[in-house]
Amino acid sequence: MKVKIGMVSFAHMHAYSYARAIGKISEVDLAGIYDDNPYRGTQAARMFGTTYFEDYEDLLDQRLDGVIICSENALHREHVRIASEHKVHILCEKPIATSLEDAQFMIEVCQKNKVKLQTAFPMRYSPPVRFLKEYLDRGSLGKVVAASCTNHGTVPPGWFQKKELSGGGAIMDHTVHVVDLLRWMLKTEVKKVYAHASTLIQPLEVEDCALLSLTLGNGVIASLDCSWSRPKNFPFWGDVTMRIYGTKGVIDMDAFKQGIASYNDERIKSIWHYWGQDPDLEMIKDFISCIKENRPVSITGEDGRKALAVALSAYRSLEKGDTVYVDYG
């Protein structure tokens, strides 16, 4: 029997990649799309050959097994609550929410309704990332002492720039991926954060450049450049890189390095065509098999909440102009 999945909002552009992934998995049926923006919703429904629902409840009445929620960050809470009350399993886009209270509420409501809640951290499924994790797990790099990381992107449009809906700028958007990888690989939490941020690339109400300095539980020092610092005509959307320093050596990992450079006279910009394995597809496959096999999700709501706590603490550091201990609520 096919697993029936519904998609909740295409506000976050990752929804398109997830929908494409669903199309590639034979045992999954994309049962429909709900979007509070009818134009965007009908367009997406047409693009992926499915039905558009104007009413969220109508989508949830389609005997769904799971939903993928890609609405604006601040709306995750309500979309998760309603789905969980319909006993539908949930894959929720990162960051899980815009406050720790919302994240905690989402985790609890899913527990209460006995549905699975996975946070969408696709980078855990990237082969270069997995190679790095396995290398560290074997102890081949000795003891890890430091990590220098980036998660760059271009300035995203629309609601990402509105604090009320996004919860913040580059920090809110790009802290959680790498923090999740650091937690996962090093098996410890971020203890302390210091942040610098500026709005210099575009006139926004949120920050577009930010540098985070992190101290982890086991004494590892780390930094994260989460800036939206890729120009519009950069050949690729951004990057996820980690340079891990161990007592026995150094590893440079660039998750999207596997690409083909393309220069075409009909375009102004050159393009980097990524040919490496699609982490989004692997993540969706894993979520589907969790539903089918009725096993716990690989990346929990709590993982999403802990990563969010670091981003929120970075904002607190900016306010205080000093280092802060991460508040995990």
């Binding site: 003891k143 002492v145 430091a146 220098s148 210091y194 610098h196 941020a197 500026s198 210099l200 450049c209 930010a210 540098l211 985070l212 300095s213 101290t215 004494g219 020092i221 780390a222 930094s223 800036s227 320093y245 007592t247 280092t323």
Partner: peptide
């Protein structure tokens, strides 16, 4: 804001990560 660690025999190996803000708002 800066962090550094030294390690290995005689603390010979080391790494430093520095987070700078200039008066103009430029970050480095």
């Amino acid at each position: 804001y800066a962090q550094n660690v030294f390690f290995n025999f005689s603390q010979r190996k080391g790494i430093a990560l520095v987070n700078l803000k200039f008066q103009t708002g430029v970050l480095a």
